[in-house]
Each structure stands twice: as C-alpha cells, then as structure tokens.
Computed example of a mutant assay.
Amino acid sequence: MPTYLILILSLTFYLTTCCYIAYNGWRWLQAAFSFKYKKSYIAVISFLSFAFFLSYFIPSVVLELAGGYWFIIVGYGLILLPLANIIYFVSKRRWKVQIGYIISAFFLFIFIYGSYNAWSPIVREYDISINKPLMTEENELKVLIASDLHMNDIIGANHIQRLVSISKEEEPDMILLPGDIIDDNITPYIEQGLSDVMLQLRAPYGVYAVPGNHDYYGGHLLQLRAELEEINIPLLMDETIMTKNGIMIVGREDFTNTERLTIEELMADVPPEYPVIMLDHQPREISEAAEHGVDLIVSGHTHRGQVFPANIITGLLFENDWGHLQIGEFHSFTTSGFGFWGPAVRFGTRAEVMIVNITFSEE
C-alpha cells in the first residue's frame, strides 16, 4: 500500500475517533452541567486534536503537553467509550451522568499517576556473569544503562539532572546510553545548555552512546555526535572501541539506517577472547547477536509500551521488549527508558535506570 494512502487512512481514522470522543463528551457535559457553549467546545477539541502535530512547526511546551495528554484520551477513549455506550443503551439510556463521572475520574487518575511514573525514575539492578577475563586484576564491573532520554523542550535540565544524581549515587564503572538521546530536534539541547548537564555523567571506563531512530528524524545526527564528542561521550555508529580494561564496546547504527552493517560484519574483526558489549537501540536482532559472539547487548526503544496495553504490542514485536533475557551465556537487556515520547505519562511502566553488575571469570 502506498505511503500517502496509509497516511490518509490513518489521519481519517484519527479524526473520526476525535469526533467520536468529542460527541460523547458533549452529550455528557450537556446532561451533567447543562453545558451550552458549543462553539467554544469545538474550538478546544480542535486545538487538542492538532496540538501535538502543530508542535513540530511551532515549538511549544503547551502544544506538546496538551497534544500528548489528548493522545491518552484518544487511546483509552477507543477502549472505554464503546463499552460506556453499550452500558448506556442496555440500561435504557440511564446512568449517562454516572458513567461520565467514572470515565472522567479514570482519566484524572491516569494523568496524575502516569505523570508520577514518567518523572520519577526507578533503579532496577541485575547480576550476571560473563565467562571471559578482563585485562585488569578486577573481575567485576558495574554498568549503568539509560536509554531514550528524548531531550526536548519538556525533558530538559531538571530531568537529566535526575539521571546525573542517580549516577553519582550508584558510582558505576561504565555508562551506556543506547539511543534516542534527543527527540528529533537538537535545538532544545543546545538552547538549554544540556551538554553542561551531560558532562556530569562520568565513569572510570567511559560513557558510550549510539543513535536511536529519533536522533535521525530531525536530520541533526552529525551535530549531535559533535556535541557529545566535545564532552567525551563517543556516539558509536557501526564502530568498535576497546576500553582500558579490555572490553570491546560495539555500537550499531540504528535500524533506521538501512545501510548499517550486519552484526556478523561488525563482529568479524573482534577478537573472540575479549568480552563484547554491544549497544543497539532497537532490540530487533537479539538471537543474531548471541550467534555471533556478543556477550551482552543493551537496547531501549520500546518504552515497554509506555502506556498499557501497548506493552502487549511491544511484547509481540520484539524478542526482548523489556528486562533481562538470557540465551545460554549471552545476555540481553532492554530498558523501558529514562524519558518518554509524546504524552508525559507512563502507565503500566515507569521511567528507569538499569544497573547491571557483571562478574567476569576465566574458564
């Protein structure tokens, strides 16, 4: 199916859904409050329906937040309103007001609890072992993983400072940032001076990043790479670095780049005796990584669906959509992310940082 036809059908479905939700809301406002301001109501609904799309042309925190919250209403409205309509007609057109209050209370709960989950990151800790030695006398490594920062007008210095605080408290030996550093546009990153905040992320064996799909979309990938390299955070794009303790860090281009190297090509020149940690934003080729000698792969991208029940979809799409997956001696970690995309809401998930404690041994 042509791309333009998919866009037309998607937009038609979205606008039809917005009208359906607006009609139900109007009928409830009339019944509950004798609401009569129809033109004002239509204006508000029209603003909310197009707010997020407008934010791409008119940078605005208000547009992004309003549009994001409206997406939550649209998503859950598709689930709740048909059910509410059935109950309304089965009850012989009674309980309209009561049903409206219940749905309104549900959305209020989602906005409050979901906002808390989005802005209060949790630390999840794991212990694994890799049967290869390090080049130093140490045999343990503490790795901090934080993906999907999505730095933009909303996710700025305050939230990234939370990551810095967690890092200082955990004192990791290495920090990995597997993609979606910015949210399409690098302008907020520069205007807010976020390099000064990111500069505070420090670890004895380095901080490493790879690009994600949103780092590509705005066309600012190379500029982002230059900004990160100025603060000694290499943005690896189909590149390999050996750390001073003998770990091979392999960073992949994102799946967005159709010309990226395969895992087999990237691993061709990697000596098999060294521990290999791979960063790949989207967890699409987990089994391939296991087959070609990678010891640990870290990813993000999925947000664990961000808002339930989207996690069911990510679970179907990806071999490891969240958490720790072990295949033999190979380990995969996919984090739900530190930031968010779209609505500043997480429901059924929470912003997180992963800590992976690795014990290395020689067999």
Results as ranks from 00 to 15, higher is better:
E170P: 03
H159W: 01
D184I: 14
I154E: 10
I182Q: 01
D184M: 12
R162K: 15
A157Y: 02
G156S: 13
D183N: 15
V164R: 00
L177I: 15
I154A: 09
I155F: 00
D183H: 09
P172D: 10
P178E: 11
R162G: 09
I175G: 00
D183F: 04
G156V: 01
P178M: 06
D153M: 11
D183R: 11
L177R: 08
A157E: 10
H159R: 05
G179S: 09
P172Y: 00
Q161R: 12
A157L: 02
N158L: 12
R162L: 12
I181F: 00
I186N: 03
R162V: 13
V164F: 02
A157G: 02
N185C: 09
E171Y: 04
E169Y: 06
N158I: 14
I181R: 08
D183M: 08
I154G: 07
I181C: 07
P172R: 06
E170S: 09
R162F: 01
E170A: 11
E169K: 14
S167M: 10
I160K: 02
E170V: 14
I186L: 15
I155R: 04
Q161T: 15
I160Y: 01
S167R: 08
K168P: 03
Q161Y: 06
D180Y: 12
D173V: 08
I175T: 07
S167C: 14
N185M: 02
I182N: 00
D153P: 00
V164M: 06
R162P: 00
E169N: 13
I182L: 02
K168H: 11
H159K: 08
E169H: 06
G156I: 05
G156F: 02
N185Y: 10
G179I: 09
D153Q: 11
D153A: 10
I175A: 07
D153Y: 04
I182A: 03
N185W: 06
I186D: 01
L163D: 11
I160L: 15
S165A: 14
N185F: 09
V164L: 07
I186C: 05
E171D: 14
D180K: 12
V164C: 03
L176C: 04
P178V: 12
G179C: 05
N158V: 13
D183V: 06
I154H: 03
P178D: 10
A157V: 12
V164D: 03
G179A: 08
D183G: 04
A157S: 10
D180L: 13
S167L: 05
D183S: 11
K168N: 13
D180E: 13
I166E: 06
I186M: 07
L163F: 07
S167H: 03
D180N: 15
